[in-house]
Deep mutational scan, measured.
Amino acid sequence: ENVVSAPMPGKVLRVLVRVGDRVRVGQGLLVLEAMKMENEIPSPRDGVVKRILVKEGEIVDTGQPLIELG
């Protein structure tokens, strides 16, 4: 699984990683606000951040690609 998608609609509050960062399974990639709750979106696997597909403040839909892992 190379693309991390939004599990719910919401607003991207914070991106916690940068392109080139090594991440571990379960590590927070970004914080999504949904229904006034902050939800940290975890990495599904170990890898390297290849691309960040959203910006802070952006509104996303369920299933929208957020981050690509390499």
Rank of each mutant, 00 (worst) to 15 (best):
E1Q: 15
V31E: 03
G28L: 03
E58Q: 02
K50E: 12
R14T: 00
M35L: 10
N39M: 04
K50Q: 09
Q64L: 06
P42D: 06
M35W: 00
G47C: 14
L66G: 05
V3L: 04
K55L: 01
I67K: 15
I41W: 04
E58P: 03
I41V: 09
L69E: 04
G26W: 05
D46M: 10
V49T: 01
M8D: 07
M8E: 03
K50A: 02
D46R: 10
L53A: 00
G26N: 13
I59W: 07
L32Y: 00
E38F: 02
R14M: 04
S5C: 14
G20L: 00
L53H: 07
R51V: 10
V60L: 11
D46Y: 14
E38Q: 03
K11A: 10
L13Y: 04
L32M: 05
G70Y: 06
V3K: 13
L29Q: 07
R45M: 04
P7G: 11
D61Q: 07
G47K: 14
G63P: 08
S43R: 15
R14H: 08
P9I: 11
L16C: 14
G70A: 12
L13Q: 03
V17I: 01
S5R: 14
L66Y: 10
E58M: 12
E68V: 13
S43N: 00
I41E: 03
Q27S: 06
L69W: 05
G63I: 00
L53S: 03
V4M: 04
K50H: 04
T62V: 06
I67C: 15
E40G: 11
D46L: 05
T62A: 13
E1H: 15
M37I: 06
R22Y: 10
E1F: 15
P65I: 03
R22K: 02
P9N: 08
P65S: 13
R14S: 01
V31I: 07
D21W: 14
R22A: 03
E1C: 14
L13K: 02
E1Y: 15
G47F: 11
G10E: 08
E58K: 13
I52D: 01
G10Y: 01
V54I: 05
D61W: 03
V25F: 07
I41L: 11
L30T: 00
K50G: 10
L66D: 15
V19I: 01
R24V: 09
V60S: 12
Q64P: 11
R14N: 04
G20F: 14
V49G: 12
P44G: 07
G26K: 05
K50T: 12
E33M: 00
L66A: 09
E68D: 10
S43I: 10
